[in-house]
């Protein structure tokens, strides 16, 4: 589905990304993990078409989308909802930009996501976790088949975060969307993904790609299992090495 081929990017003299090649298959959940400042957000801007790589190409379903916009759907770190729009109007933004609005589907999706009571509320009436849910639904409802999620839960407290991860899986597992997910939280990456890409810093290179063997659907028990902890240790070793 998404393919990066030898993508490099530098700002001035500072090389940020070096020879990044990665692959996200149809319906796959891929996490990119690495320390802050490892150029993860730059990578997203490249895939989103806001920046042009110095070298390399980006393909989506076989089509070259290097430096082209509008091919991916996006969920930022902050919920970034429009304060003057109600929740239902907010989740329809992505569709509006591409032309067609499907009000019924949005309504049904919000119901299913447990947001049925706040369809006509304004964002300021919602808690931080609820706003993130809305932002995720907005990304999911956008017509593009690949979602980029940029550390979406990093601003939430630990309790809300675990809830959100379970909730995200429950919504996403019914769907066919592919996800590329940025995080610096190892637990989060392991719990959610099919594949974890570990980046190094200065410049960011791909250190290792780890296939996560856990079966779906996953639940909270997994977080405390021996197997989970072993994988976590393995990833930490790779990062520290």
């Amino acid at each position: 589905m998404l393919e990066l081929r030898h993508v490099s990017k530098s700002f001035g003299n500072k090389q940020v990304l070096q020879e990044i090649s990665l692959h996200v298959a149809n319906g796959e959940f891929v996490s990119v993990i690495g320390p802050s400042g490892s150029g993860k957000s730059t990578m997203f801007s490249l895939i989103g078409g806001l920046l042009e790589p110095d070298a390399g190409e980006i393909y989506l379903s076989g089509e070259n989308i290097t430096n082209k916009r509008g091919f991916i759907s996006y969920m930022p770190q902050q919920a970034s909802l429009f304060p003057w729009r109600t929740i239902i109007e907010n989740v329809l933004v992505g569709q509006e930009l591409q032309g067609k609005k499907d009000y019924e589907r949005a309504e049904a999706m919000l119901e299913r996501a447990g947001l049925g009571d706040v369809i006509h509320a304004y964002p300021h009436e919602l808690s931080g976790g609820m706003k993130q849910r809305v932002a995720f639904i907005r990304a999911l409802l956008s017509p593009q088949s690949l979602m980029l999620l940029d550390e979406p839960f990093s601003a939430l407290d630990e309790f809300t975060r675990t809830d959100m991860q379970k909730w995200l899986l429950s919504i996403w597992e019914d769907d066919e969307q592919s996800i590329l997910f940025i995080t610096h939280n190892i637990d989060e990456a392991l719990f959610l993904s099919d594949k974890i890409i570990i980046l190094s810093v200065n410049p960011a290179e791909i250190k290792e790609v780890i296939e996560v063997p856990f079966k779906r659907p996953r639940d909270e028990e997994l977080l405390l299992s021996e197997e989970f902890l072993q994988w976590k240790r393995k990833i930490m070793d790779v990062i520290q090495y």
């Binding site: 989103g48 806001l50 509008g70 759907s73 996006y74 970034s80 429009f82 933004v93």
Partner: peptide
């Protein structure tokens, strides 16, 4: 942040102006 969101989503200049 809202501008960044709109650009990532592929909004053009007119959409950016009228919607945001």
């Amino acid at each position: 942040e809202l501008v960044h969101y709109m650009k990532m989503m592929g909004a053009n200049k007119a959409q950016l102006f009228w919607k945001l």
